[in-house]
Design a binder for these strands. Structure first.
Lengths: 205, 205
DNA sequence: CGAGTGATTGACTTAGATCAATGACCGTGG
DNA sequence: CCACGGTCATTGATCTAAGTCAATCACTCG
């Protein structure tokens, strides 16, 4: 199981106050187990520790639509804490471990410590930014341009190289390309001198 | 100019306290004008009243990457209010009108009225949900399946029909398909009895 | 040592993008 | 009141980039 660590930068340590972290409850799920069902009372927000949780909405026809597939490190059901009930089902797509941060301790912490509330809000705002960026990336049709833009975005600071911490196959999924296409496109880019690959590092030129 | 009113449901009235709304300052931009530049001090968050604002990052090579293209009704630079400086440029893609809600009155309102802060946070959380859903939609390769899923998602409540308030051409852009493909696919779906179209309303069957 | 995952390259096919043309509907300004 | 420019809807023809299927090899792990 991969750990989808594209979310490294927002591990709970950064924005969850100690008191809330302590109140976290771990839970183990087998493939197919429900973490919660639509229309049931909300418990709080979840962090995926391991595995993969799918949020799905089932149409009357039985057809299921995936709203979000969360991997290790991802936060789940942020919006639910402001709602009395869930609006979709959450199912384990594989054997998974999640951690529940119950609503009450969370709100209590925010009430008592405005900085904690602000940290949480800031985390949400940054997540929005990242999501919009990923979405915008998908508007680039050409595989090559898309990949290039992705690499540019990933070269944090002003270095001209990107270090991939996750396998290319995962990068492919994230940017919405078949992994074969990613391998091929990278090869083409290298052949054209657009990039240089050195193991897990890719240098933009 | 379109008004991209997919954002109807989160118009500022819902989550911005009156005091902040009053502090809003309108500004008019011509095509190409900068709303703000990277590394300059942050002023607050913006709402696009009219037109279109692009957030872009310029690579040293001069290549520009679009991080987000905001249309009327959209909120801009939420994350910036927690940062001293901007991390990208904002340019008007067309003649535009924006409204700035300065940081200070915003924070003041949140400090004095926890409900206002919560409303803001809740709005961010719901925006995250929507973005994740849109992103997940893009993972559906087949135009037909994608369109079908989109329609299912849009049929709010439990009605089996969707009323399109925006032109199909805009729907196409939102779900990442060429508009011709959307027309054709809808035609095919109707021919197969998967949907029925009645003007601006589409009935799922 | 097999099983599982990732990397890579080849061959093939096809769905969807692109380019084009047409017609319906505005709203607006002369 | 009508002509014109702009946006949207629609359908046809064409083409190609990228998905899919397949095979191979390298690695790691229990």
């Amino acid at each position: 199981m991969q750990d989808g660590n594209r979310s490294d930068h927002r591990h709970r340590e950064d924005w969850l106050p100690q008191s809330v972290r302590d109140a976290g409850v771990q839970r183990v799920l087998d493939t197919g187990d429900f973490l919660f069902r639509a229309d049931t009372r909300t418990a709080g927000l979840f962090e995926v520790v391991e595995g993969r949780i799918k949020l799905v909405r089932i149409a009357p026809s039985g057809r299921e639509t995936i709203l979000y597939a969360a991997s290790a490190g991802d936060i789940l059901a942020e919006a639910s804490i402001f709602s009395p009930t869930y609006h979709c089902d959450a199912v384990a797509a594989t054997h998974s471990v999640v951690r529940l941060y119950p609503k009450e301790p969370l709100f209590a912490a925010f009430r008592e410590n405005p900085m904690a509330a602000q940290a949480f809000t800031g985390m949400l705002a940054r997540e929005i930014m990242r999501l919009r960026t990923r979405l915008e990336l998908r508007n680039i049709r050409s595989a090559r341009d898309r990949l290039h833009a992705y690499l540019l975005l990933r070269r944090e600071d002003d270095s001209s190289s990107v270090i991939l911490r996750e396998p290319l196959i995962q990068v492919a999924a994230e940017i919405g390309l078949a992994h074969e296409t990613v391998y091929r496109t990278l090869a083409a880019m290298e052949a054209d001198g657009e990039i240089v690959r050195r193991g897990t590092r890719i240098i933009l030129t």
